[in-house]
Computed example of a mutant assay.
Amino acid sequence: MMKRLLPFLLLLVLPALARAADFSGLSPPEGPLLVTEVVDGDTLRLEDGRQVRLVGLQAPKLPLGRSGFKEWPFAKESKQALEQLTLGKKVSLRYGGRQTDRYGRALAHLFLEDGSWVQGKMLRRGMARVYSFRDNRALVRDMQAIERDAREARRGMWALSYYAIKHHLEAGRFTDSFQIVEGVVRDVASVRGRVFINFGDDWRTDFTLVVEGKARRLFLDSDIKLSHLPGKKIHVRGWLKYYNGPMIQLTHPEQVQIVGSAPD
């Protein structure tokens, strides 16, 4: 009996999770405006000609005319999901940070006429993951909570190993890509204005996080205290580069989530 009721109960609970997000920090609504085209799983076009990038999301990428670009797994399904949600419907735009990117696209949170938050719906279905920036941090923690639920339920893209959380010891295999990496912080060191967060004994080869001066100030005002990280198990997201081993540069606290402590 309970198994038969579970899907129904989830339908009741999941919308409530979306409503729990606090939208009061966003700008007043702009619109509604008709969605005339969906470009991919995180970008669409409005009736006034503007393109909108769903701020806070990264959907699996399509080539979109880029020569030699290999389509990411689940990209078509993500686009189709956004089409199903928005194409031919009216949406309102609300901003929580920088309003346009270097390509002139609006960086907005989108809401359907019934008040539904489009970002939340895409994340809940496992059609995108959270992708935040220093100058657009509104609602990131809310989005990460929805993403976590989808990941734990293996919905959408989270059923694929391609998007699995990577252990810090294997991070070197995934440089030049955006990843979520898991590991226990070994130590934190400050060197000439930079903070280095180390996950192994050899900082020259092991996975490391780097925090520059401006970003360091953001951490001072956040719930993520860098000096308290040793011994903590964390998830960190960002673009993996190679600098004395695999590394991610931290520009804002929301890239880091504390998920536990090192086992005894």
Rank of each mutant, 00 (worst) to 15 (best):
R155F: 12
A159D: 13
V188D: 00
R151S: 14
F199Y: 05
F207C: 10
S190K: 09
V195F: 00
F207G: 09
R154Y: 02
G200A: 07
G200V: 07
R194L: 14
H167N: 15
D187R: 15
R155Q: 04
D201C: 04
F174H: 11
W158M: 03
D206V: 08
S177Q: 13
Y163E: 04
Q179W: 04
A171N: 05
S161Y: 03
F174Q: 12
A153Q: 07
R186H: 12
R155D: 08
V181C: 01
F178W: 12
V191E: 10
L209H: 02
D187C: 02
T208R: 13
R192P: 06
I180C: 10
A150N: 01
S161R: 01
I165N: 02
A171S: 13
E182M: 02
Y163G: 00
G200E: 08
F178D: 05
Y163N: 00
V191C: 00
Y162E: 05
T205G: 10
A153S: 12
F207Q: 07
R173Q: 15
V181W: 11
Y163K: 02
H167V: 01
I197L: 14
D202Y: 09
E152N: 06
V185E: 01
V185P: 07
R186L: 14
R194K: 14
F174D: 07
F178G: 06
F196H: 09
D176Y: 07
E152A: 11
I165V: 15
S190Y: 14
L169D: 13
D187Y: 11
W158D: 00
L209E: 03
V195C: 04
D187I: 03
A171Y: 06
V188A: 03
G156Y: 09
F199I: 02
F207P: 04
Y163M: 03
H167C: 01
S177R: 12
R173C: 13
G156K: 05
N198H: 15
G193K: 08
L160Q: 11
D201Q: 12
F178Y: 15
K166Y: 06
R155W: 10
E170W: 14
E182W: 09
V181P: 07
E170R: 13
W203K: 11
Q179K: 15
K166I: 15
L169W: 13
E152C: 02
L169Q: 10
A150D: 08
T175Y: 11
R192N: 14
A159E: 07
L209R: 12
T205S: 15
I165C: 01
G183V: 13
S161L: 05
A159H: 06
W158R: 01
R154P: 10
R155H: 07
H167E: 15
T175G: 00
D176R: 13
E182L: 14
H167I: 08
T205E: 15
E152Y: 02
V181R: 00
F199C: 07
G156R: 00
R192Y: 06
R155C: 04
F207H: 01
N198F: 02
K166W: 08
I197Q: 04
R186C: 00
G193W: 06
Y163A: 04
R194Q: 09
Y163S: 05
A153Y: 03
G193A: 01
A189E: 15
R192K: 06
V184W: 03
F196V: 09
R154H: 10
L209T: 09
